[in-house]
Nucleic acid binder design. Structure first.
Length: 224
DNA sequence: CGAATTTGACCGGCGC
DNA sequence: GCGCCGGTCAAATTCG
């Protein structure tokens, strides 16, 4: 349990709030943690009490393999629904953005003479390496995009197999912020929205909703 | 008219 | 090697 908190804080997550009910997912893979959002936060943000947060810790390369049998777990545990991240190729790898950032300045100079297509290829190839911290949560909601205080720009939409609802892809609009999220509706229950965040914001949420900003930052601290 | 969204094309990874 | 699939790009379109 303490190890997990440490891991979470390394990922940029704040320590779990005292009133947070932490549910060790019995029978589930160790990398999957489920806990409920405290009632106060639920009230502040009009999130239904059925909302459960699934936090996927960083996976070592060793347990990546084990994780492959975890395709789509949805089970009851003490009344709380657990939901694993979907398995996909992109779940096994994440973008090597950090390294990319570190060497970006040099690369811009070196690549200056290359054509656009070549640059594009290099960019694509450079991506895959380390895993970004990600987690998803499931909310019963009429609207697809929950207001989390950050500004997002949609950059894609895709119909995924065996679902009737398209998945939407969003990127944080903040300069140099590469956080992404995707939003989809649960095939089995279209009332449920699954939001998956990937990466960490290196900035504060946008302050558009002033009256809401305090509660908002509380929630965001909880998330990040 | 600039910003945001839509949408078809494209790419890499993976399974067969 | 090939086809399928999820994720991303970017031109076209819509919105404010």
């Amino acid at each position: 349990m303490f190890e997990e908190q440490e891991m979470a804080s390394q990922m940029g997550f704040v320590p779990f709030p005292q009133n947070l009910s932490f549910l060790p997912p019995l029978g589930c893979h160790q990398s999957l943690k489920a806990f409920s959002i405290p009632p106060s936060l639920v009230a502040d943000h009009h999130l239904p009490s059925t909302t459960n947060l699934i936090h996927e810790t960083l996976l070592s390369s060793a347990n990546l393999k084990q994780r492959e049998d975890q395709d789509h777990i949805a089970s009851d545990f003490g009344g709380a629904q657990l939901l694993s991240l979907q398995r996909s190729s992109a779940n096994l790898w994440a973008w090597g953005e950090v390294n990319e950032c570190l060497s970006n300045n040099k690369r811009i100079v070196n690549d200056h003479h290359l054509g656009v297509a070549t640059m594009k290829m290099k960019k694509m190839k450079a991506r895959r390496k380390v895993r970004e911290p990600r987690f998803c949560f499931k909310t019963m909601s009429e609207v697809d995009v929950l207001d989390d205080g950050y500004k997002w720009r949609k950059y894609g939409q895709k119909v995924v197999k065996n679902t009737q609802h398209p998945r939407s892809y969003y990127r944080c609009t903040q300069d140099n912020c590469r956080v992404k999220k995707r939003v989809e509706r649960l095939a089995e229950d279209p009332r449920m929205v699954i939001t998956t965040y990937e990466g960490r914001h290196g900035h504060s949420p946008s302050q558009d909703d002033q009256e809401d900003s305090q509660a908002q930052s509380q929630l965001n601290n909880f998330f990040w």
